[in-house]
Design a protein around this nucleic acid. Sequence first.
DNA 1: TGTACATCAGTGAACGCGCGTTCACTGATGTAC
DNA 2: TGTACATCAGTGAACGCGCGTTCACTGATGTAC
Lengths: 207, 207
Amino acid sequence: MTKRGYHHGNLRQALIDAALDLIEAKGPTGFTLSEAAKQAGVTPAAVYRHFEGREDLIAEAAIQGYDIFADLMEYAYQSGQPSALAAFEATGRAYLAFARKYPGHYIAMFESGISVNRTPKLSAVSARASQVLEKAATDLSQHIPADKRPPAAMFSAHIWALSHGVVELFARNSPGRASPFPADDLLESGIGIYLRGLGLIGPDDCS
Amino acid sequence: MTKRGYHHGNLRQALIDAALDLIEAKGPTGFTLSEAAKQAGVTPAAVYRHFEGREDLIAEAAIQGYDIFADLMEYAYQSGQPSALAAFEATGRAYLAFARKYPGHYIAMFESGISVNRTPKLSAVSARASQVLEKAATDLSQHIPADKRPPAAMFSAHIWALSHGVVELFARNSPGRASPFPADDLLESGIGIYLRGLGLIGPDDCS
DNA sequence: TGTACATCAGTGAACGCGCGTTCACTGATGTAC
DNA sequence: TGTACATCAGTGAACGCGCGTTCACTGATGTAC
């Protein structure tokens, strides 16, 4: 809602929003430029005033997603300070919360098949998101004796993979694949067990 | 290669194989019935002699995938006996190996969006696959003191999610998303840390 | 304030394309006598 | 063995459809004087 006055007002964002709706509803490849245009009340050709084409529209949606994602993770990280452990756990929870709250963005980011190196902008904003998680992991790894400390990048990758797996398999209502447990619990308990395995929480405070 | 003699010989399987190739190359939605027919050297209409349509062909590919998958996991499970721990770890490794070796099947099974309840056959064969993993988890959980033992279904879900996440994010050459570590190592070390968190392996035998 | 002009967001028609699916058909294969 | 017939896997043409993209255009908005 920038200018309010031109023909449409803010078609660019309206198109992105429509794309996100459609991506959420039909998957990244079921999404259609023409349908997004229709949903925004506009001719397909109008899209080309704002984007280079179909792919560019998806990429823009992904960029906005990474931005929200990084902000959310950053906020969660801060909110757990000064405890490295609390910060890390909050960051993990924020991952799932993001996937839940912004499924269209999530899909555009991780399932649309667009390369993260498509544009410098996209690559930068996705790097920012990874770095938050990696920072949380690095902080936390300081608490592990140096000789048995795995690389922070490795265990941030573990947590990312676990989170992504939970989202894909159990958080989304994967057709016909019922979750045995609520996704939150699954992720929370999984991270808990993992951190205990790293010796970062005592053997008994089973969260 | 059943009869060898009719017009094509074994068009049905040739179509499934072509579909798997295409799914691997272009994703589940980029896959096209017409192209699969062409790759099998046949008119699109011929497909309808063997399948009800596009979806049915994908479902059949998924069914064959689940069958191979379950066999592979079963074999890995057996190969680790009588050690519950070895069996469990082998099963986890088999997951990744399957995803690596049969990417077309893996995508048809987990990313094609077809419901696992589409047909009784599909639902049965997918249940068989889950059960192998769950059995391995149940065996293993016997070694955890009953009072602090999480449900086996839960930790089989954890391992499944971790494996799936590793596959999706790091094993497939996700466009532009370079893996910081080899996927095998990532999964192996992740499972190791997780199992230590469950108290199933000692704090020092860092596999 | 009023007028002439430039800008440019969105239109509407058209394009070529490949899709999934249908249908009547053909002709090779298998079978009964 | 030879002939007449039934089967049915695959053909080829056709269908209606929605897609992404292009293009010359129009007409509302903003601006210079």
